[in-house]
């Protein structure tokens, strides 16, 4: 991942157990980092998700390189720290059309807004869902309790 190390000398790099590289970049340089990876051949967006660390959110974008001749190319995870309230980030859905629904899911579950997303709506939960973003750690279900079903009594 030398092309990223040259460009982001001060960013934190870490290697996972299976050889994947993760890099933590500042939010304002996220677009630059993704575009650099795209130009380096990482044109396959495997997954977009987030982690709730309770004091901050971390957006994780997993990119892969699809080249049939290469064996064992590890994934690249670009991480961005975002505030828990009102998080916004540039959307990669126009660069990677496959990230479209993953970003919608991340918005649905964590409340991160993606600027420039072509169809910014909830995806798994209903459009009129008012209960918040369920995968946040402090999520509580505020819906009224459902009444217990009363067992039907047959006439004696």
């Amino acid at each position: 991942m030398d092309f990223l190390k040259e460009r982001f000398p001060e960013a934190q790099f870490e290697t996972h157990v299976n050889g994947d590289t993760e890099v933590l970049v500042p939010a304002e340089r996220y677009e630059e980092a993704v575009r650099a990876c795209y130009d380096a051949g990482f044109t396959y967006c495997s997954c977009v998700t987030a982690i709730d660390w309770q004091d901050r959110l971390t957006l994780v974008t997993s990119l892969a390189r699809i080249n049939p001749e290469e064996v064992g190319v590890p994934n690249l995870h670009i991480k961005v720290d975002l505030p828990r309230q009102g998080a916004r980030i540039w959307s990669i859905a126009n660069l990677y059309p496959g990230a479209n629904w993953h970003e919608r899911e991340t918005y649905d579950m964590y409340g991160i807004r993606f600027d420039g997303h072509p169809n910014h709506r909830r995806i798994l939960l209903p459009d009129n869902w008012q209960g918040g973003h369920p995968l946040l750690k402090d999520f509580t279900d505020r819906r009224p309790k459902r009444p217990r079903l009363v067992r039907h009594r047959f006439a004696e």
């Binding site: 996972h16 157990v17 299976n18 994947d20 495997s46 997993s62 994934n75």
Partner: peptide, 18 residues
């Protein structure tokens, strides 16, 4: 402590678990 993104070839395609 740590994290992992493991990908395998499922029946329908790339199944991955983070």
């Amino acid at each position: 402590k740590g994290e992992i993104y493991h990908r395998i070839e499922g029946a329908r395609g790339e199944v991955a678990c983070y």
